[in-house]
Amino acid sequence: MDKKPSHARTVIAYIVLIILTFLCLFFFYILLINCTRSHQQIQHGFSFLPGSSFVKNFNNVIHDAKLPVLSGIKNSLIVSACCAALATYFSTLTAYGLYAYNFKLKKPAFIFIMLILVMPTQVSAMGFINVITKMGMINTLYPLILPSVAAPAVFYFMYSYMQSSLPLELIEAARIDGCNEFKTFNRIVLPIMKPAIAVQAIFAFVQNWNNYFIPALVLQENSKRTLPILIAMLRSADFLKFDMGKVYMLITIAIVPIIIVYIALSRYIVAGVALGGVKE
């Protein structure tokens, strides 16, 4: 009946989608191409075909004396992995405490966390630096990791997930079966929360992997720095003298691992994003 307008609309939709897909992928395509080409080739002009300098660029970046890339990767991995573990474990614990138990401060505690749900950490950055300096934690990785224990957004996701997937009767059954409260949490609640924990762990990991503002303020020694800071250092170096193959390679190192993990787990991640938004 109205096949025709639908048909036209479909064509427009596909055109827009293809343009957007191109925008999303093209830059990464250039990145991947350029990280395989030597400085001279890159200066010479753009090419759609990869070059042969991938290994050379990689070695150059890894062995750059001024740019501690290997330790940067290591630091980034440590911070991101610890943050992911702490944020998911303690957010689940907090959500469980507020979900499964009745106590006087339950409601105020919940309202409080909801109020700070989207409060950015930047606003207290100044005091944060002061406090961790006094605690002797400046220029260490701890101040980047420990605050993850209080992650309101992860908490909210966990709490919503519990409401839909963790009946209170299950907890009571565990009590009768002989679990103490910690055992109930570790042996019953955590396994049930696994899908939610996996999704949030990925998000927490990525977020901290990409984090720049606070680490840049906290970490001052070269050997302690994380990847985003190294990229910023690259930017402030004298750019014209720089080996462009190395620049593209460092960006590749910072981005590609995340993209590979993302493509492998994309189904769960996209579903997780959607879940975060379904709020009635």
């Binding site: 009767e169 299950l170 009571e172 059954a173 009768i176 696994k194």
Partner: peptide, 11 residues
């Protein structure tokens, strides 16, 4: 105890 929702551990 046997619960209304059975409360079987799903995992």
């Amino acid at each position: 105890m046997v619960f209304q929702s059975y409360a079987l551990y799903p995992h």
